[in-house]
Amino acid sequence: MADDKTKRDFRDRDRVSADEDYEVEYFATKTGVTPQQVKELIAKHGNQRETLELVAKALRKQ
Rank of each mutant, 00 (worst) to 15 (best):
R11Y: 03
K30E: 15
T34E: 07
H45K: 12
V33Q: 01
T29H: 12
E40I: 02
R60G: 03
T6Q: 13
E53R: 00
A58I: 04
P35L: 02
Y22A: 15
R60V: 12
K61G: 01
K61I: 05
T51L: 06
K44Y: 02
K39M: 10
V55W: 02
D3F: 09
K57Y: 12
E23P: 03
T6V: 08
Y26I: 07
A28V: 02
T29V: 01
I42S: 00
T51H: 05
G46F: 04
L59W: 03
P35D: 07
R60I: 14
L54S: 09
V24K: 03
E50L: 12
A43S: 11
D4Q: 09
Y22M: 14
E25W: 01
G32R: 01
A43L: 05
D19G: 13
A43F: 01
T29G: 13
Q62I: 11
P35A: 02
L41S: 03
I42W: 04
D9L: 00
A58F: 07
G46H: 03
E53K: 03
E20I: 09
N47V: 04
Q36P: 00
K44W: 03
K57F: 09
D14W: 02
E23R: 10
V16G: 02
D19Q: 12
T34K: 04
L54W: 04
M1T: 08
S17K: 06
I42H: 03
R8C: 04
R49T: 01
Q48R: 08
H45S: 11
Q37T: 08
A2S: 13
T6G: 07
L54P: 01
V33S: 02
T31C: 15
A56Q: 00
F27M: 06
Q36H: 05
V16K: 05
Q48G: 09
R13H: 10
Q48S: 08
A58Q: 13
M1Q: 07
A43W: 10
A18Y: 02
F10N: 14
R8L: 14
D9N: 08
A43H: 03
Q36L: 14
D3M: 09
Y26Q: 15
Y22F: 14
E23I: 07
H45R: 12
A18P: 10
L52K: 03
N47L: 07
E53M: 08
D14P: 00
D12S: 13
P35I: 02
E53Y: 00
G32F: 06
D21T: 11
T31M: 15
Y22W: 15
K57D: 15
K5A: 11
E40W: 01
T31A: 11
E53Q: 06
V55Y: 11
T6L: 14
V16M: 05
R13W: 09
G32T: 10
R60H: 09
N47C: 06
E20H: 14
T34C: 04
L41H: 11
D19P: 00
A56F: 01
K44G: 00
D14H: 02
T31G: 03
F10T: 07
A43Y: 06
A18N: 03
A56C: 05
V16N: 00
D12F: 07
T31D: 10
K57V: 06
D21P: 09
H45G: 13
R49L: 05
L59M: 12
M1E: 13
L54I: 07
D9F: 00
M1R: 06
K30L: 14
R15T: 13
